[in-house]
Design a protein around this nucleic acid. Structure first.
Length: 433
RNA sequence: UCCUCGGUAGCUCAACGGUAGAGCGGCCGGCUGUUAACCGGCGGGUUGCAGGUUCGAAUCCUGCCCGAGGAGCCA
């Protein structure tokens, strides 16, 4: 009978003793007449042991010389072994080299971030990077499961767009045949507003592009965002959905990605308490909080990274900040009926200093008010004609938000920089690899 | 765009005006339970680029290039 090919993560579940593994040589050690091979196959790592019982002296010397990251197929008996790094090992009977690797540039030593970013295509093979990418994948799955279970419809927004959503200074521009300029989307929101009037509860999930010359630990020029939009929901319904979504995602990761969080040495205590309700403070209360802390902050300014950190450190859960001054927010946000200088919006700041992960609001549903705002903001009316149209045909109050995938991943994984939260980051000074 | 820091061996760094060095990786050898294994040996350089000061420049000066940390803006 053929020896079955098993993935490393399935080893504890399988009852097979004699198995085959297909993977790569992640590390090796040798002690003369015994050779230890650390094998990875994408699902995990396991130590393989080769000695003179199964191999000749000559074969053992060959095995000892296989370069790191060579692709190998091995066979042997698996067993629990306390001396092995993962508690399991495979006692090898056959080692077949598929492809001999050249000298692998990434060592098990410290590297500069510049070097690692230059070798991102190889860096993702490292244990921690694999753990991050697995968690990212599960976060996306959890978000989609949450929304799908609640009757939301996935509606894909276009990437090539004729105009901007939030402003005109931060767009990537390209030529679009004879129709002039087109731009890479910086948000699918306006299209989701159209879609929610068709389908009730919708969301889009996709990349967003910002040509901002931002160079911080929280910025990428290309990032992924999920943007739900709900007809007939007001700004408070909106916040309830947000806190339920974030809690669902965090609890899912704690439940299914424990091992990855351990590899990342993430302290999971702060994550365990992420359950509704989240604290809610107004913009004015946030300003007062800063001033009480001795931070000279003017009412009417927008919060910077430092301010967000200080505010979020006051709470052990994500915190909503709502009712911002209309002046510092985009044109489409619904003014507060009790004070039109404020808008019915909210940001959500992640704890532990991770800053803004969500921006959301109730949208303007009144035709005249929207037209007024477009005029006030000197936006090209022609480009927004279809958007204005939504207010002509059965307009209703509606709300939505955008959740940044990389910032959320960075927070849950405990990363210092969002560039590790996406497979191939795009930054102002880096587009390679 | 602005401020700050940096660029020396494949990698991480030292040498700070006087002959460019170490650790790791690689290669050769040793070791039957290693955990970033360990021990011995051997190779490895246009000091980011261009110019200047000096008897002499990796080191001082000017300009440029490329990164990193941060700010503004934002998810």
């Amino acid at each position: 009978m053929a020896i079955p090919w098993i993935y490393i993560e399935d080893i504890p579940k399988t009852k097979k003793e004699e198995i085959e593994l297909r993977g790569w040589l992640a590390n090796k050690r040798s002690s003369g007449k015994i050779v230890f091979l650390i094998i990875r196959d994408g699902t995990g790592f396991i130590q393989g042991v080769a000695d003179l019982n199964n191999f000749t002296q000559e074969e053992l010397e060959k095995i000892e010389k296989i370069p790191l990251e060579s692709s190998i197929i091995v066979q042997g008996k698996v067993r629990e072994e306390p001396r092995a790094p993962t508690g399991w090992e495979i006692y090898l009977s056959k080692v077949e080299v598929i492809y001999i690797s050249q000298e692998y540039p990434i060592q098990k030593k410290d590297h500069s971030i510049e070097f690692l970013m230059e070798h991102r295509h190889l860096w993702i093979r490292s244990r921690k990077q694999q753990a991050i990418l697995r968690i990212r994948s599960e976060i996306i799955k959890a978000i989609r499961d949450f929304l799908d279970e609640r009757g939301f419809v996935l509606v894909d927004a276009p990437i090539l767009t004729p105009s901007s959503c939030e402003g005109t200074t931060t767009l990537f521009e390209l030529d679009y045949f004879d129709l002039g300029k087109a731009y890479l989307s910086q948000s699918g929101q306006l299209y989701m507003e159209a879609a929610c009037m068709a389908l009730g509860k919708v969301y889009c999930f996709g990349p967003a592009f910002r040509a901002e010359k931002s160079k911080t630990r929280r910025h990428l020029t290309e990032f992924w965002m999920v943007e739900p939009e709900m007809a007939y929901w007001d700004w408070q319904d909106n916040m309830r959905l947000q806190e339920e979504l974030i809690s669902y995602v965090v609890q899912r990761i704690l439940e299914r990605k424990r091992r990855e969080l351990e590899i990342l040495e993430r302290d999971i205590k702060p994550l365990e308490g992420i359950l509704p309700p989240f604290p809610r403070i107004t913009y004015r209360e946030a300003v007062e909080l800063l001033n009480r802390k001795g931070i000279p902050f003017q009412y009417g300014d927008d919060f910077g990274g430092d301010e967000e950190t200080i505010i979020s450190q006051e709470f052990d859960k994500p915190v909503f900040i709502h009712h911002y001054p209309a002046k510092i927010k985009p044109f489409y946000m619904q003014p507060d009926p009790e004070n039109p200088d404020l808008v019915l919006n909210n940001d959500l700041l992640a704890p532990e200093g991770y800053g803004e992960i969500i921006g959301g609001s109730q949208r303007i549903h009144d035709l005249n008010l929207l037209e007024e705002k477009i005029k006030e903001n000197n936006l090209p009316r022609e480009a927004f004609e279809w958007y204005i149209d939504l207010r002509r045909y059965g307009s209703v109050p509606h709300s939505g938000f955008g959740l940044g995938i990389e910032r959320t991943t960075a927070w849950i994984c405990g990363l210092k920089h969002v560039r590790e939260a996406i497979p191939f980051p795009r930054q102002i000074y880096r587009i390679y690899p």
